[in-house]
Amino acid sequence: MNSRKIQKGFWKRLAALAVMAVVCIGLYTASLVDRHPLMENEGREFVKARVIEVIEDNQQSGGVYIGDQTVELELLSGAHQGEHIQAQSSSAYLYGTHCTPNLKVVAIVSESDGELVGSVYGYYREPALLGMIALFLLTIILIGGRRGLYSVLGLAFTFLCIFWFFLPMVYRGYSPVIAAIAVVIATTLVTMYLVGGFTVKATASVLGTVMGVLVAGLLAYLFGKLARVSGYNVSDIESLIYIQEQLDIQVGQLMFAGILIAALGAVMDVSMSIASTLQELHDKNPQLDTRQLFRSGMTVGHDMMGTMSNTLILAFTGGSINTIVLFYAYGYSRMQLMNMYDIAIEIMQGISASMGVVLTVPFVSLIGAWMIVRAARKSSAGNGKTL
């Protein structure tokens, strides 16, 4: 009986993977947008290079770097691969890097009157970043086993939804909020059914997650109306307005779409945790009714509310820590701080996402308890527990 149940679950997950593959193909087709870069890059390319020699250094007495270095580079990629050029490298914080022989860098190369002109863009850090990502994914698979593999697949699908669906739809002029809702629903369905299988608890988690994220978005909209904060009050609005003038992107909705996507992870975590707990409790004690299961879910949710809300608040705070340090150092008054757009946006994002997490608890507890008890009654009449 158990082997038959395992086999049945395997084929259902295989079907989910097949559906995900078909959806990925559809997403890729939707991502084929004819983009026209707003910055002219003709005749210029970013290439991997190696520092051969530092021709002129910019190190002063005392170890201070002033001005630019002049270096000789060997181009390791691009149309001029294998050629050697002289380039300038700044020791600034954001661009350039202090070059030493054999250092791998990224160079900007352009051709002018048949002569190559180059400058060092920055340190070549792609291998380090890819290594970090690979270590993260490998850790999930080694510790989580088959479930970990399904989690990685769900994570990959999430990124595909964002880069192959959300961004192209926004670029084409569609509503960012509607596109974000579609991403939330698609990601939730694939992730929950991959990790939890086609079960009652997975279905309850899907419903609870979607409801929680939509509530977070609605609250953000209402808070924005009350505080008179919109998507046009963000710090980089000048650049976004320029993009809006060139394209049909609905800039005003981007902030609210971002809140929906940002809240998804935490809401999904709470939703699946409570649904799994309810299913486990009912499996251990099938005599529990809907009311008792609901109370158990609320009890578990009470402990999760504080930690998950803390996670979201700290995540938004950590993302703005540089700004917060500046405000603290300059000694801004409470009246000034509480009426700044930046502070209002951070509070609105953190509170609305946390409210989505908190309200997910009763949503999932009620839906999960009702569905689990209902499935158990059907099971006693000869039906299986899985959907």
Rank of each mutant, 00 (worst) to 15 (best):
S3G: 02
I6K: 11
F10Q: 05
K12H: 11
R13T: 14
A16T: 14
L17A: 09
V19F: 11
V19Y: 03
V22M: 08
C24S: 14
T29I: 15
S31M: 13
R35Y: 12
H36S: 07
E45D: 07
E45A: 06
V47A: 02
A49Y: 00
R50E: 13
I55H: 01
E56A: 11
G62I: 10
V64L: 06
G67V: 10
D68S: 09
D68A: 07
L76M: 09
L76F: 02
S77T: 08
S77K: 00
Q81A: 05
G82R: 00
A87N: 04
S89E: 04
S89W: 02
L94A: 09
T97E: 06
H98P: 00
L103G: 00
A107S: 02
I108H: 01
I108Y: 02
S110H: 08
E115F: 03
L116F: 01
V117S: 03
G118R: 00
S119K: 03
Y121V: 09
Y123A: 07
Y123D: 07
P127M: 04
A128W: 09
I133N: 04
F136Q: 04
L142W: 12
G148S: 09
Y150I: 01
A156G: 11
T158H: 06
I162S: 02
I162M: 09
F163W: 09
F163E: 06
L167I: 15
R172K: 14
I178S: 06
A180F: 03
A182V: 12
T187I: 01
V190D: 05
T191Q: 07
V195F: 03
V195S: 02
T199H: 01
K201Q: 12
L207R: 10
L207F: 14
G208M: 05
T209P: 08
G212K: 05
V215L: 15
G217V: 05
G224L: 02
L226V: 13
L226A: 10
A227Y: 02
R228E: 11
S230T: 14
N233G: 06
S239G: 12
L240V: 08
D248V: 12
S273C: 14
S273L: 10
I274W: 02
A275R: 04
L278V: 12
Q279V: 13
Q279P: 01
K284C: 14
D289S: 08
F294N: 13
R295I: 15
T299I: 12
T299Q: 14
M304C: 12
T311E: 00
L314N: 01
T317G: 00
I321F: 03
I324S: 01
Y328D: 05
Y330D: 14
S333L: 07
M335D: 14
N339T: 12
Q349H: 03
S352I: 04
S354I: 01
S354A: 09
T360G: 05
T360P: 13
V361I: 15
F363E: 05
S365V: 11
S365M: 08
I367Y: 05
A369C: 13
M371R: 05
I372K: 07
I372S: 09
V373Q: 12
R377V: 08
R377T: 10
K385M: 15
T386Q: 06
